[in-house]
Structure formats: structure tokens, C-alpha cells
Nucleic acid binder design. Structure first.
Length: 462
DNA sequence: TCTGGGGTCCTAGGACCC
DNA sequence: TCTGGGGTCCTAGGACCC
């Protein structure tokens, strides 16, 4: 069914409001849905262990870009007292003393393994939403006539197949709402006695309450550190406390987001599965420099390289961008050094999806706002006001004929660039600006190979 | 020496419109 | 004497997620 909406009138606005009210306060009996949540255990680390089985029992950590801080760590690494977000230089001594394996982020590898994992799961359930690189929601509504044991068995079969086919360990949660399903998955990870799957339907009321009473409210999906602190000041410390809070107070004091989370914890589904990933609304590429940068040429080079990646994402999702922005700034941790930060954007007269136009616009912004004498630490680009690319070739005024001809030429050139990148690698041919300087390239001293995506890295058996 | 990056959604307030 | 009640669109800032 296709709904064509040419005119929004007051009845539709009324209908929208009514829908919003329904989503926030579904009447009893309408929320008999069932969700699956699954994610990998220490995903990046598990990917690194895939091709290095000798690391199976050793602590493993994966670092952020530039080898800055720890972004993923195994159970064994957590046992050393380490946490996500700790700077590498502070953790280094402990890691070395305990024979830990340390890796730079290898997104090419993780993306490839993620695809295998999610395709494997998708084949076993009716509908799936890919929520993040290592995480999915599934819709199990109506499956197994709601027989709790059957559903637990299904989750175990999925875990077993992912383990066998992809080699990645996972856990799963099953519940009537997304928030509860994610919480169940958290329990499955925390308490090994559950054997990797927690099914809300299989827990009796007393068990559910005990679990929620033992869950700090900050563990709940949607409750971040700010909200956690504000709740703590009101004496709300556990998930159970939040469930029992006065809904009116939650709504007034914290807004609709937390009100929805509370409803979900109470078992009323407010967040539907979102199977088709909508095109992104903005595309951002930024990186810190390995060492400080003060020359205009180097900044432009960095921005040009980031733009190459941003335009690749832009084109992959079939969009064109009407606004292009740049950002660059000094090191905020160097409190005594002179600081300078720029975040500026330019709205173009049309939407574009070609590297030349967008790079020119970005470089012009850098030239305009660059100031000599600062030690810049980070630079990036962003593309917003995205539109479907097909729309970019429609005339917008009576006098667009010439512009459209230029646009069409640039599009043909861009298509050629895309093809060259596909056949000869993504850095084979790009704008000259990207080569003005190379002395800012990211540090990745501990990078593993890409045996699933690069022929040169393929495993050899001796 | 050394502290990541890429996203989403909501809210409040101002300008403007009928 | 008395000065409405909706809306839209945009931006900046905040909070959250992995």
C-alpha cells in the first residue's frame, strides 16, 4: 500500500498527535510483541581472536583510532581492573605485565565479520534490525505460540550457528520490549549460569523484581551518566526504582525519552523494530592527527582525504549534500597552549555528490578560517542537508540548464572515479589536495591483517 | 610522549505566518 | 478596558547510543 500525501491538514495533525499519544501510552493488551536482542561478546576482541586462537584465554584489548584509548576488552582484561575508555598510556604497564594482546582498530576486519554474523542471524528469524556493528534486534512476535522454552531454544540455536559458522561468541535476550530484551541480554552476559540466553517470559515475577533491583539504573538502555546522576539525587538508583517512579514526574522532569524507557521497562512496547536502515541524515569524518599540525597545506590535505571517505559514504547511500562543513581544533588537553577551534559550514546553491565540488567548498572554508601559529590536533568534514541524488539533477529554476550540464559532466567523472576505486583500491586516484602533505596520518602501530577482505592477507597453512 | 569517532533524537527559543 | 491561537522552520545545545 502506498500513501500519497499532498497536503497536510488539521485532521492529519490530529491523527499524528493521537499516534504519538498511543505510542507513549499504549492501551493494555496491544503490546503483545516479542523481541530478540543479540550481541557479540567483546566483539572487536573476538574478531582479533578469530585468526589467533592462541589468544583464547589471554587478555585482549582493542584501541581507538591513533591508538588512543581502550574501546573493547575481554573478560580477562576486565579482570585486570581495566575499563572501556581508559587511555592506552595509562593501561600499558598493566597490559604488558599480564601478557595481554593489544590491537589497533581494524574496522575493515570487524565490518566484514559483522556482515557474516548478521546475515547468519537474519536467515533464522522473520524480521531483523541491524542496530550496530555487533548488535541486532529481532521480531519474534507470534513465534512458537509464545512458548517460552521454544523461544529460548531458538535463541540457543542461533548462538550455536553463529559460533560455528562465524566463530564469534554471542549472548541473547528475549522480552516483550526492546529495552527489556537488551536488559535480558545484559543479564545473560553478566550471569554465566544462564548459559548465554535470558528469556523474560521464563522468569517469574519475584525473579524479575530481584533482577531489576540488582541493576543500577545506568545499565538501562537510554539512561546515560547525566540522567543517572539526576535520578540518584532523587533516590532512584536501580531499574526497579525507575519502574516504580511516578510517570508524570518522569515525563515532566526528564522528557519523553525517559518516559518511553520507563514504559518499556514496565513491559509496554513503545519502540518498534526498524528493519530498513533509513539513509543517514548526516555524514561526518574526523580524525586526530598523530602529531600536531600547523600548516594550512597539511590541514587542507587532511580535509581532502576525509572528504574522499565522506563522499564514498554519501554516494553509497545514494545521497547528495547541500551543506558542507569543516572542523579543526587544537588539543583541548593542552590547557596552557593557545586554543583555536573552527566548526564552519557553507550551504551550497544546489546539492552535490561529486568529490571535486565538495572538496573545493571544504578547502575554501579551511582557507577562510585557518589561523597561523596554532598547533592543530584534529580535523574533519561533515555533509548535511542530504537529499536523494536523483533529485540533484532536477532543475530548480528556469536558468539551471548550464548548471545541470556541468553537474552531469562531474557526475560522469565521479562515476569513473568510483569504478577506479573499486578496481584499484580506494586511494588509487583522488584529488591532488590529498597529497599536499602526508605528515598527519593516523598512528596504528598494532594493526592486524585483513584475512577476509584482502588477498595479500589471506591465511597460509604450512 | 600519550586521552576516539560516528551517529540519533529531543527541547527550547526566536522569527515568521495566517 | 480588552491584544489569540494555532502553526512552521531553523538553530544551538544537550543527552544518548555503540
Amino acid at each position: 500500500m502506498k500513501i500519497v500525501c499532498e497536503k497536510i491538514d488539521s485532521r492529519m495533525i490530529f491523527a499524528c498527535k493521537k499516534m504519538k499519544a498511543l505510542i507513549l501510552n499504549p492501551p493494555a493488551g496491544t503490546s503483545a510483541r516479542l523481541f530478540l536482542h543479540m550481541d557479540a561478546n567483546a566483539f572487536y576482541c573476538s574478531c582479533e581472536r578469530l585468526f589467533r586462537p592462541e589468544l583464547r584465554r589471554r587478555p585482549v584489548v582493542v584501541l581507538s583510532n591513533n591508538d588512543g584509548c581502550i574501546v573493547a576488552l575481554t573478560r580477562e582484561a576486565k579482570a585486570l581492573g581495566l575499563k572501556r575508555g581508559v587511555p592506552y598510556f595509562k593501561a600499558r604497564a598493566v597490559l604488558e605485565a599480564n601478557g595481554a594482546a593489544v590491537f589497533s582498530s581494524n574496522y575493515e576486519l570487524y565490518q566484514s565479520i559483522s556482515g557474516r554474523m548478521q546475515r547468519t542471524i537474519a536467515a533464522m528469524i522473520p524480521a531483523m534490525e541491524s542496530y550496530s556493528i555487533d548488535e541486532i534486534f529481532g521480531d519474534l512476535t507470534g513465534l512458537g505460540q509464545g512458548n517460552a522454552q521454544d523461544l529460548t531454544d531458538l535463541a540457543q540455536r542461533i548462538r550455536g550457528r553463529v559460533r560455528q559458522w562465524v566463530g564469534i561468541p554471542t549472548c541473547a535476550g528475549i522480552a516483550p520490549t526492546k529495552t527489556l530484551a537488551k536488559l535480558c541480554d545484559h543479564y545473560a552476559k553478566t550471569y554465566p549460569a544462564f548459559d548465554g540466553v535470558v528469556n523474560w517470559l521464563a522468569l517469574d515475577e519475584a525473579r524479575r523484581e530481584r533482577a531489576m533491583a540488582a541493576t543500577p539504573v545506568g545499565e538501562v538502555w537510554g539512561v546515560g551518566s547525566r540522567t543517572e546522576a539526576a535520578l540518584a539525587a532523587m533516590g532512584v538508583e536501580t531499574a526497579l526504582d525507575l519502574v516504580r517512579m511516578d510517570p508524570g514526574l518522569v515525563r515532566r522532569r526528564f522528557g519523553v525519552v525517559l518516559a518511553r524507557t520507563q514504559r518499556e521497562l514496565q513491559g509496554a512496547s513503545c519502540m518498534p523494530l526498524q528493519p530498513d536502515a533509513a539513509p543517514r541524515q548526516q555524514i561526518v569524518r574526523t580524525r586526530s592527527f598523530a602529531s600536531a599540525v600547523d600548516s594550512l597545506e597539511t590541514l587542507i590535505a587532511a580535509v581532502s582525504v576525509h572528504m574522499t571517505d565522506a563522499v564514498r559514504s554519501l554516494r553509497r547511500q545514494g545521497s547528495a549534500a547541500r551543506t558542507v562543513g569543516v572542523l579543526f581544533h587544537t588539543d583541548p588537553f593542552q590547557e596552557k597552549a593557545p586554543q583555536h577551534g573552527v566548526l564552519e559550514s557553507q550551504r551550497l546553491e544546489r546539492a552535490y555528490a561529486d568529490l571535486l565540488t565538495l572538496t573545493q567548498a571544504a578547502a575554501a572554508l579551511v582557507r577562510r578560517f585557518y589561523r597561523k601559529g596554532f598547533a592543530y590536533r584534529k580535523a574533519g568534514v561533515f555533509l548535511t542537508d542530504l537529499e536523494p541524488r536523483a533529485q540533484a539533477f532536477l532543475p530548480e529554476t528556469l536558468f539551471d540548464g548550464e548548471k545541470l550540464a556541468v553537474l552531469a559532466r562531474r557526475e560522469r567523472m565521479q562515476e569513473t572515479l568510483d569504478e577506479i576505486a573499486l578496481r584499484f583500491g580506494k586511494r588509487a586516484l583522488t584529488t591532488a589536495a590529498a597529497f599536499l602533505s602526508r605528515d598527519w596520518i593516523m598512528r596504528r602501530d598494532l594493526l592486524s591483517p585483513c584475512p577476509t577482505t584482502n588477498w595479500d592477507d589471506i591465511l597460509r597453512v604450512n
